[in-house]
Amino acid sequence: MADQGSVRAASAAPERQVFSAERLRTFFPLFLLAVLCVIFASLSERFFTVGNMMIILQQSSVLLVAALGVTFVIIAGSIDLSVGSVVALAALAGALTVDPLGPWALLPALGAGVVAGSISGAVFSWGKVPSFIVTLGAMVVYRGLVLLFTKGAPVSVFEIGFLNLFGGRSFGVPHAAIISLTAAFICHIVLTRSVFGKEVKAIGGGERVAHLTGIRVKRVKFLIFALSGLLCGLAGLLQAARTMAATAQLGEGLELDVIAAVVVGGTPLTGGIGGIGGTLLGVLIITILSNGMNMVGVDPYIQYLTKGLVLVLAVFITIDRKKIGVIK
């Protein structure tokens, strides 16, 4: 009987751990963000100032806007590797038209984003090519287009109305921060409150079930990529205003930061679950990690190392292995 008692005690312990792991999972991104803030604030008094907070918001805006669309893509169980190139293409479209159009250069930029995203979406949905491959191809093709147009030379943006709208500040708050947070809020509402959002989650949770239940899966998938393109267009505008130019290298490697931000925010690559709130946290974590390490003066090589480790650690802790089942 003593034997049985010890078996019971031994099995009760992991159960309690599972319970706390559940909590840890939900709150880990928030916890990580807080820890980073405390560490950097204790290492540099410049970190926790209103000025630096505004800089962080400004720095995170491009990443955030691009990550919003990719959150939809990933929740639907697909992937978008082309965001960096689409951002560059949209920034270029804006920069080339900014002189006649002024702030209205936003139309060609957003248009370029939507068209680029829609083409990927159409090939993916109706051409039945996996999104990984389609967007990998799109990444290269769109980057090639940008190089073709710019011949490698930057296209400068001097139009003051445009720079003010997307790169200026009001009452000390960067417009980029207002725009990106507004976009995040709208995306949050769309994902949680609209029929489209439900359909996106249903496709990620079980595409076959969604199809047989009467959801027009192909159309929804197409729209998701068009939306991702639109948001890349917006990100391109913010980026062009911030650097006052569209360059051939603009947005290179952005796709990896975007995916990292979405995943660190708790949206698994397997789809079906996740949200915009998590992505916002993920974006802040990645931005603050760079901002803080720069401020403290960490060796750039070590910065790479740290970012990679934080990414894997965050997923290691937050992933809900019970819900996912197969880890690919």
């Binding site: 989650k201 249903a202 949770g205 079980g206 076959r208 079930v209 969604a210 047989l212 079906g272 679950i273 819900k323």
Partner: peptide, 9 residues
């Protein structure tokens, strides 16, 4: 499981 219900929903 595979066609009727989204089990995580």
């Amino acid at each position: 499981g595979g066609q009727g219900l989204i089990t995580a929903f």
